[in-house]
Amino acid sequence: MTDRDDLDMLAAEFVLGTLDARERAAVAVRRQSEPDLDEMITAWERRLSALADEVTPVTPDPELYQQIEQHIDALETRLAGADTDSHDKSNVVSLHKRLRRWQWSTALASAAAMVLVAVLIFQPAPEQRPQSFVAVFQQNDQQPAFMLSVDLNNRQMQIRPVTAEPMQGKSYQMWIKADSLGPNPRSLGVLSDNFELERAALHDYDPELLKEATFGISVEPEGGSPTGQPTGPAIHGYLYPVADEAPGPSH
């Protein structure tokens, strides 16, 4: 068997899906710099694609599309924010519109009692123009329970309670989720009685990842989730950029 045959079989098994996680990751990296391998993979995708024809379609829940739209809103707003010279009020106006839609859809989406959180990320742009991001998670038109501000440069975050109060026998736990972190949220820690997290909570996370990530806060048994995953009611959302004269969340 020639090396080329071996390579073709590697491509074939990559497409078939039978490689293990490490082998898959290695092939995914190699194909970026090996056009031969990349072409073989594409050829196998074409050869086997007709197999997918026998899959029975399953209609997704309508909420799924709303979530995808919100995610894209967040991505596009961030891009627009990066491209715009003057961070004028129009950003703020569109933000407010989105906030209203979010409140509405979040309220619809879940009947569970939820805590509320606002996330603010302040990020100095290259030309030292401060750029901030905000995401508000709101339920039942109440005030946000928390505001979270993140300084991407030194990876520090600050949590300010707005209406949230310590709960007897319960703890608030902070989570992060991103594509590159795998399917499950990771704990950033349990909030102290003063609503603080350890200073190093974000140190393991790249600023680029933080911009893409979803943050969440869940209500857990005292001391934090016993399972390592959120067990109580939780809320989450994506970040929106706002003008640097960042307004507080409306209402």
């Binding site: 989406a109 989720k177 959120p230 067990t231």
Partner: peptide, 9 residues
Amino acid sequence: MSEPFSSST
């Protein structure tokens, strides 16, 4: 709906 932070039910 699939919520990233919902408990795994």
